[in-house]
Simulated assay, not measured.
Amino acid sequence: MGIELNHTIVWSSDKDRSAQFVAEILGLPEPGSFGRFRVLELGNGVSLDFADRQGPIAPQHYAFLVSDDEFDAIFARIKDRGIRFWADPGQQQPGQINHRFGGRGVYFEGPDGHDLEALTAPYSGAEA
């Protein structure tokens, strides 16, 4: 068996708010609970385990590979909520999406400043 990512902890100032935000924007089912975590199950068996943390949260990057139809729905929810978005992770191209590798991508921030990305074409195997 090859090595696969199983889960990752997403530190949050409010795990319920953060997990719900990501679930709603991505159009996923209500987050579940496991111990002290709010758990968001992704389609490939990986879970995001949201946990509360006191003090500053170091922003991380989470990228979600989605279909074209899912991208359209996600992007519509981002715009409907008035969430700022960018075509790049450095936030130098506000109000735009990118078209890397023949797909589409958008970056936006979660409640604790985590850099979230929805993309329709994977970067793996792409030419630099």
Score class of each variant (00 low, 15 high):
Gly35His: 11
Arg77Glu: 04
Ala73Val: 09
Ala63Pro: 07
Asp115Ile: 04
Val39Cys: 03
Glu41Met: 06
Gly27Trp: 12
Arg100Lys: 12
Arg17Met: 12
Ala76Asn: 14
Ala126Ser: 14
Ile78Gly: 07
Pro59Val: 02
Gly82Asn: 03
Glu41Leu: 05
Ala121Ile: 06
Pro31Tyr: 07
Thr8Lys: 12
Glu30Trp: 00
Gly55Asp: 05
Ala23Gln: 06
Gly32His: 06
Ala118Arg: 02
His99Asn: 13
Ile97Arg: 04
Gly113Val: 06
Asp115Leu: 11
Ala51Gln: 09
Met1Asp: 06
Pro89Val: 06
Ile25Asn: 03
Leu28Ile: 13
Val66His: 07
Tyr62Pro: 02
Asp69Arg: 11
Ala19Phe: 04
His114Glu: 14
Glu70Gly: 00
Asp16Ala: 15
Pro111Ile: 07
Asp52Asn: 13
Asp80Pro: 11
Gln54Thr: 13
Asp80Trp: 06
Ile74Val: 10
Ala128Ser: 04
Gly32Tyr: 12
Asn98Gln: 06
Asn6Gln: 15
Asp52Gly: 09
Thr8Leu: 15
Ile83Gly: 00
Asp115Asn: 15
Glu127Leu: 15
Tyr123Ser: 13
Ile83Met: 09
Asp88Tyr: 02
Gln93Lys: 02
Leu5Tyr: 14
Ser33Ala: 09
Arg104Gly: 01
Ile97Val: 05
Ser18Glu: 12
Lys15Ile: 02
Ala76Lys: 14
Gly95Ser: 07
Pro89Ala: 14
Gly32Ala: 11
Gly32Cys: 03
Asn98Leu: 08
Ser67Leu: 06
